[in-house]
Amino acid sequence: MPTSRTRVNLLLLTAATLIAALVVAVGLARGNEPDRATFSAPPSAATVPSATATTVPAASEPPDGLPVIAYADGPRGLPADPDPESATALTEALRPQTRMALYDAPGGRPRAWLPPRISGLPVVVPIVARQNGWAAVLVPAANRTVGWVPEAGWQSEPLRDQLVVDLGERRLTWLREGAEQAHWTVAIGTGATPTPLGRTFVMGRTGTSGSVYAGLDALVLGSVPEDPEKMAAGLQKAHTGIHAWANSSVFGKDVSNGCVRTPAAVQRKLLAQLDPGTPVVVTA
């Protein structure tokens, strides 16, 4: 015959069992889910993940000593532009307010800092692709190169203009919102010092010295000489430019050190109309 203490224990055990059963019943009634480590019910149609859903790769912390992109010192380790000669209009750009790390892939390794200014020029880089919460931008001081940044902490700004340089035709075309505004015959680089192919952009403008430039500023591009060793010493760390040329006999010819030479009237129009970040694509 059970003692008084045994009866009490039995009553407590029975009460605990009833309470546990009640908790499970209430939990199921409220839609609470059992621990997925021990039980996994098939999801309903409303909770099946979308086939296009993606996970945003996290950005790793940039290491100490990450190099900063400079005018004469481009980045290393970043990937090639996936579509370097595409003439599709690029319509948005990134303008960093503080330095931003450029990664070699979405969620990949940081390779360089992109500063807000380079040699006094404001940095405005066209966006060429988006993937899994990251954006790829054209990189200054490196030909046909992109860097990835997480889409957080910045806002894109619109681009309206585009320049297309057709090397075969020695022609420069200006488009605004996809519509051609004008085109002109220009001079381009020689076989030894070619105008770099691919997508780049206008970094800004700089002064020139000498009457041959018609007293007009040059537009500095993000591209640099393909083979610096073949350039004169003073141009080995220069950038490609678009600038006026006073001698009209050069137009339609391959005569420059890689720059695009324009008539003075054309250069005035470009200087008046184009903003930093304007995409430029050079095609064969």
Rank of each mutant, 00 (worst) to 15 (best):
1 M>A: 14
1 M>S: 14
1 M>N: 11
4 S>L: 11
9 N>V: 15
10 L>T: 08
10 L>S: 09
11 L>P: 09
13 L>W: 12
16 A>H: 06
17 T>F: 12
18 L>G: 12
20 A>M: 14
20 A>G: 13
26 V>L: 11
30 R>D: 08
32 N>Y: 15
33 E>R: 13
34 P>F: 12
36 R>H: 12
36 R>M: 02
37 A>W: 01
43 P>M: 11
44 S>M: 05
44 S>Y: 03
47 T>M: 11
48 V>D: 03
49 P>R: 02
49 P>I: 00
55 T>R: 12
57 P>C: 08
57 P>A: 07
60 S>R: 13
60 S>M: 09
62 P>T: 13
66 L>F: 13
66 L>M: 09
74 G>T: 10
82 P>I: 00
82 P>M: 04
82 P>T: 04
82 P>W: 02
84 P>W: 01
89 A>C: 00
90 L>S: 05
91 T>P: 05
91 T>D: 11
92 E>R: 15
93 A>H: 01
93 A>T: 08
93 A>M: 05
93 A>D: 02
94 L>V: 15
96 P>M: 13
98 T>H: 15
99 R>M: 15
99 R>S: 15
101 A>M: 10
102 L>F: 09
103 Y>I: 07
104 D>L: 04
106 P>R: 03
106 P>F: 04
107 G>S: 07
108 G>H: 04
109 R>K: 14
111 R>P: 00
111 R>S: 08
111 R>Y: 10
113 W>L: 12
114 L>E: 11
118 I>K: 01
119 S>Y: 13
121 L>G: 12
122 P>W: 07
122 P>N: 08
122 P>F: 08
124 V>F: 02
126 P>A: 10
127 I>F: 01
128 V>S: 01
132 N>C: 05
136 A>C: 10
137 V>L: 13
138 L>N: 01
144 R>G: 06
144 R>P: 05
146 V>K: 03
147 G>K: 00
147 G>V: 03
148 W>M: 10
149 V>H: 01
151 E>A: 06
156 S>E: 01
158 P>W: 09
161 D>Q: 07
162 Q>W: 12
162 Q>G: 02
164 V>M: 02
170 R>Q: 14
171 R>K: 15
174 W>E: 08
174 W>A: 14
177 E>K: 04
177 E>I: 08
180 E>F: 11
186 V>L: 04
191 G>E: 12
192 A>V: 09
192 A>Y: 05
195 T>E: 00
196 P>E: 04
198 G>W: 04
199 R>D: 06
200 T>M: 10
201 F>A: 03
204 G>I: 06
204 G>F: 07
204 G>L: 05
206 T>L: 09
212 V>R: 06
212 V>N: 11
213 Y>T: 08
214 A>M: 02
216 L>K: 00
216 L>Q: 09
217 D>L: 02
218 A>M: 06
218 A>Y: 03
223 S>Q: 05
224 V>T: 10
227 D>C: 02
227 D>M: 09
228 P>R: 04
229 E>P: 00
232 A>Q: 10
232 A>I: 05
238 A>L: 04
238 A>N: 15
239 H>M: 05
240 T>F: 02
241 G>K: 15
243 H>E: 06
244 A>R: 02
246 A>R: 11
246 A>T: 06
249 S>G: 11
251 F>S: 10
254 D>K: 14
256 S>Q: 12
260 V>I: 14
263 P>Y: 04
267 Q>E: 13
267 Q>Y: 00
274 L>F: 08
279 P>C: 12
281 V>R: 01
